[in-house]
């Protein structure tokens, strides 16, 4: 009950910053479309993110994953799972789904190679080979995240 009230508040209170909505009639599944930040190899890509909201939200975080394939050290290349502290240990009811979208965009600009879910991407950055990382990330952005490829 409290979860529903909270999610309805979030639905009513969200801004136009992202295309963020619940899926169909289900308040417990949401999707957002985020824009790749211009200072990153994900620029002009559009990425769909799915949030699965647990019954005890906002005391527990939603499960967030990329639906759009992305090459990033903190995103699992196959499942789209995201490694981000506010989605796990640092989660607080003070966060919202919209604030999470903002944190995920920030993660695209500032990849963290220390706890990689995508080891290839992590290794490139750790080795200082930003050229390799940027071109791989760019290539997958063009292949999977550009307008013409969205269905």
């Amino acid at each position: 009950m409290a979860t529903r009230t909270r999610l309805l508040r979030e639905l009513k209170g969200k801004t136009e910053e992202f295309s963020l909505n619940n899926v169909g009639d289900d308040l417990m599944i949401w999707q957002a479309i985020i824009q790749g930040p211009s200072d990153s190899p994900y620029a002009d890509g559009k990425f769909t993110i799915e949030f699965r909201v647990p019954e005890n939200y906002p005391f527990a975080p939603p499960k967030a994953r990329f639906i759009t394939r992305i090459f990033h050290p903190n995103v699992h290349f196959d499942t789209g799972d995201i490694c981000l502290d506010v989605l796990k240990s640092d989660w607080s009811p003070a966060w919202s789904l919209e604030a999470l979208c903002r944190a995920i965009v920030a993660l695209l600009s500032a990849p963290n190679a220390d706890s990689p879910l995508n080891c290839d991407a992590g290794n490139m950055i750790r080795a200082g080979d930003m050229r390799a990382y940027n071109s791989m990330a760019r290539m997958y952005t063009i292949e999977f995240a550009q307008e013409r490829n969205l269905n």
């Binding site: 409290a2 009230t5 909270r6 508040r9 979030e10 009513k12 209170g13 906002p58 009811p93 003070a94 966060w95 919202s96 604030a99």
Partner: peptide
Amino acid sequence: GFLPICYEDF
């Protein structure tokens, strides 16, 4: 800096 949607229920 907290958002009303996050604290109002509390």
